[in-house]
Design a protein around this nucleic acid. Structure first.
Lengths: 128, 128
DNA sequence: ATTGACTTTTACGTAAACGTAAATTAAAAT
DNA sequence: ATTTTAATTTACGTTTACGTAAAAGTCAAT
């Protein structure tokens, strides 16, 4: 297995190294260290980072993303824990579904408005 | 036609009056005033506020929301303006579509993980 | 071996999006 | 008429999510 350095990841995702370190400060990601203290990121770390960035695009706060990651990430061994995780997951799934529906409606409205504008434009062109 | 006061709107949308005034500061909403300077909001103002809050839920910044509102809101009379608006609208529409696709993928992944968890739970229950 | 690129921690700075408090005025209720 | 409730402006405070700079150590290449 091989590792990424912080600047490699930063370049790949087009973010700053500061940003990656900040996510670590907040407990979202935990790279291993070399003897000298340099951070090394595994493929898994990279995947987590990708998750974080996707969450951000959806407008989730780092706090929310943190919650999701720690619930889905850990080996939820105990049965109670597992049940809790499933409940939380279903809740989040519902939120995502609602968000999708909301966005679909927005999309529809935008399409309507655009159609309207295009019609107006055509009318302007026809009458010149 | 009748009006809403600021605290009525605040209650309806479960936000603070400060928030509403802040949106005004940023030029997103422009209520009329009584002689004494009290803000009065029309149905249209209310609709704009609703738009703002929806935009926020999608993770758009107030700046982006401002742009969208001012482009779709005004009477884009000139032909050049209309063309520009259409182009901008199509761009935003594309962004929304991408966001939807992204969310659909996330939803799918969450469902897979949840299924996995549920299977595990059932196995635990079967073996007791 | 030394230069240059990269990394680390520490720490102060900043923009966005409000919260909160104070002082004042106006509207609503008793 | 006078409390009570709601509104206004002004202004400083706060949180989130980083940016930026400094000082010092480390890795890679010549």
């Amino acid at each position: 297995m091989n590792y990424y350095t912080i600047s490699q990841l930063a370049e790949q995702f087009d973010i700053s190294t500061r940003t990656i370190r900040y996510y670590e400060e907040r407990g979202l990601i935990s790279p291993i260290r070399t003897e000298s203290g340099q951070r090394l990121y595994t493929k898994k770390d990279r995947a987590v980072l990708k998750l974080i960035l996707r969450g951000k695009r959806f407008g989730f706060s780092l706090e929310e993303i943190h919650e999701m990651i720690s619930l889905f990430d850990k080996d939820r061994t105990g049965r109670k824990q597992l049940e809790k995780t499933i409940k939380y997951g279903e809740q989040k799934l519902k939120e995502v579904t609602e968000r999708i529906d909301d966005l679909l409606q927005l999309k529809h409205e935008m399409e309507t408005i655009l159609q309207d504008f295009k019609t107006r434009l055509r009318e302007m062109e026809d009458s010149e």
